[in-house]
Design a protein around this nucleic acid. Structure first.
Lengths: 224, 224
DNA sequence: AAGTAAGGCTACTTGCCAGTAGGTACGTGG
DNA sequence: CCACGTACCTACTGGCAAGTAGCCTTACTT
């Protein structure tokens, strides 16, 4: 009965393409992180983005394309965040420490980005999984380089007792797992998280370098 | 033209229900592990199982039911494998070591089970994710108990420097990540994998217990 | 003021796939 | 050899969600 009958939620109208694309990507990351790739619907993404579905297709392409762009954007963000925090002229342990802090800071600030990258991306078989595992591999290699650098610095040659790559994989896994844990414990700061990991891992690694080795004790049959 | 016209792949006929259920579950684990829950189709599962689709529904229920049963069966298997390998009267480090070996042996032998549990289960929102994270939590708590036991044994009281739970989460993550790594390096034995982890983690942990702590050095601004 | 390009939408088509209806073979006990 | 139950199948339905055709609307430009 009033003169202004329709007031559909009053969403911003006629914005430039770049802005819309950002909004859509933001919405997509949010929805993907909540439901995963398959269960997320384009309709819901469009709704969250405050935009109709065809816009998504004209701007960002198919659902798969969209997901790919999400992955790439968030991966880049993460990588840049970590690189920004690390100073290459410091000793290996300090580099690792700063990298870890930046990583945990990022995860805390962009939870959804982390969830999409870590949890969802692997579940979409094919190209994306490859892309993400690739990035993960780069991280592992980076850590491996630090580890080796620390090792040779201390005069450690080839050692049959461990593989740098395997250890680094374990370390990265530990870091990721702790990140997931931290999602449910936001009161723990990034510095504390990074310290835990350093203490757990770096101390053990130092021992290794210096020739101290854990071995199964006592008379249990142990053929490695 | 021959007298025996049709020879459709000659699959076993009229088997008892229990056998069929096992076949179906085996097929389901295989297909789910390859494609993930959503992309896996009941048609393909039935094909792999050598059985028609309605059988799956009469025997195991809906797709979700089926997936649930896969998860539960494999989780039980894994848990039993680990428990079978561990002797409760050994010192904490040896318990951990044996647990790890059993774990890696299981992963090597039942790759698909591990993939379903680790990668796919989390992606199906809701009850299953909860179930799996629950199992994971139990593992973390188990490890935490070992860690605390070792700590108190050495006379370590409350320590602000670390949280047992967080550390255990990191350790479990490291173990999982190393398991994934090992999937692509089948030449590395379970004993070696377990040793790496023990060296990486337990040595570091021992240092911690004995009061040795890693701290960020040099004049970098470090407010934890 | 007319032309035009870019922003934006509603409403449809289409294909896939979970789930089912309804039936056929095979065995076993009477 | 007949009746009944259990193993098993082919062939369909129904719904959901990806992707699209076609049209309207605002804001410059000349």
């Amino acid at each position: 009965m009033s003169e202004e009958v329709q007031r559909p939620p009053e969403r911003a109208r006629r914005l430039p393409r770049a802005v819309r694309e950002r909004q859509i990507l933001d919405a997509a990351v949010q929805v993907f992180s909540r439901y995963g790739y398959h269960s997320a619907s384009m309709d819901e993404i469009s709704e969250v983005a405050g935009v109709s579905k065809p816009m998504i297709y004209t701007y960002l392409g198919s659902k798969e394309d969209l997901f790919g762009q999400c992955i790439r954007r968030e991966a880049t963000r993460l990588l840049e965040a970590v690189q920004a925090g690390v100073q290459p002229d410091l000793p290996p342990d300090m580099q690792l420490w700063h990298g870890l802090r930046s990583f945990y800071r990022f995860v805390a600030e962009y939870r959804e980005s982390w969830v999409v990258l870590h949890r969802q991306a692997l579940t979409v078989g094919g190209a994306f999984a490859a892309e993400v595992t690739d990035m993960r591999l780069r991280a592992i290699e980076l850590v491996a380089a630090l580890v080796v650098s620390a090792g040779t610095r201390k005069g450690l040659g080839e050692q049959a007792e461990f593989s740098g790559e395997g250890l680094s994989a374990a370390l990265v896994g530990a870091a990721e797992s702790l990140a997931d844990w931290a999602l449910e414990h936001p009161e723990v700061s990034d510095g504390v998280l990074a310290s835990w990991l350093m203490n757990l891992v770096w101390l053990g690694f130092n021992d290794l370098i210096e020739g101290q080795v854990w071995k199964p004790s006592e008379g249990t049959t142990t053929t490695l």
